[in-house]
């Protein structure tokens, strides 16, 4: 199972047929493993990594650190849930260190993102403070370098 996960983590578009050939098992076995992993929510989803900067669509990403007062009996989870339900919120992590939650937000303009923070996040009862930083350039995400110049420069044949 771990092999299937490793292969899909690298490239989720790989066909069951090719995964089967890489692992020396049958296509049916691969399909079975994947469906099992999906059912158990080990494979949580499949996405495509897009460099929107290369398109006409304007996208602004922001990274927001939040300090939180945990709710009695509910801890941080309930607050996190109230935050991640917003579709603009792309990522929510509980963090160690000076802040409690790290939140990634996507919007069309800086103003839109700033207003979302001011109107939705900051006023929440349990939110003590917010600190917003805007993403200026993405170099690498999910282990993939956006402008990779490491081409194959090997000779065609060497012994």
């Amino acid at each position: 199972m771990e092999d299937v996960l490793r292969i899909l983590e690298q490239d989720s578009t790989r066909s069951n047929k090719n995964i089967a050939r890489m692992l020396g098992i049958t296509e049916d076995e691969v399909a079975e493993q994947i469906s099992e992993l999906e059912k158990r929510n080990v494979i949580v989803g499949y996405k495509t990594l897009i460099n929107w900067d290369k398109t006409d669509r304007e996208v602004v990403d922001a990274f927001i650190e939040l300090k939180i007062t945990p709710q009695r009996g509910e801890g941080f989870d309930k607050v996190a849930e109230r935050i991640y339900k917003y579709p603009q919120v792309k990522t929510v992590y509980l963090m160690s260190g000076t802040h409690d939650l790290a939140v990634m937000i996507e919007g069309r303009t800086m103003k839109e993102v700033a207003l979302f923070v001011a109107e939705k996040l900051a006023p929440m009862d349990s939110v003590i403070s917010t600190s917003t930083s805007f993403v200026l350039k993405k170099y690498k995400q999910e282990g993939i370098v956006f402008e990779d110049d490491e081409k194959d420069t090997r000779q065609v044949i060497t012994l």
């Binding site: 090997r154 065609v156 044949i157």
Partner: peptide
């Protein structure tokens, strides 16, 4: 090396797919 000519031919070809390299593809 008897296959020098073959090497040169392969090196000049544009859309050649090579499985001829004796070194890792990893950097």
């Amino acid at each position: 090396s008897g296959i020098r000519k073959f090497f040169d031919l392969a090196a000049q070809m544009e859309d050649v797919i090579s499985l001829g390299v004796g070194e890792p593809d990893f950097v």
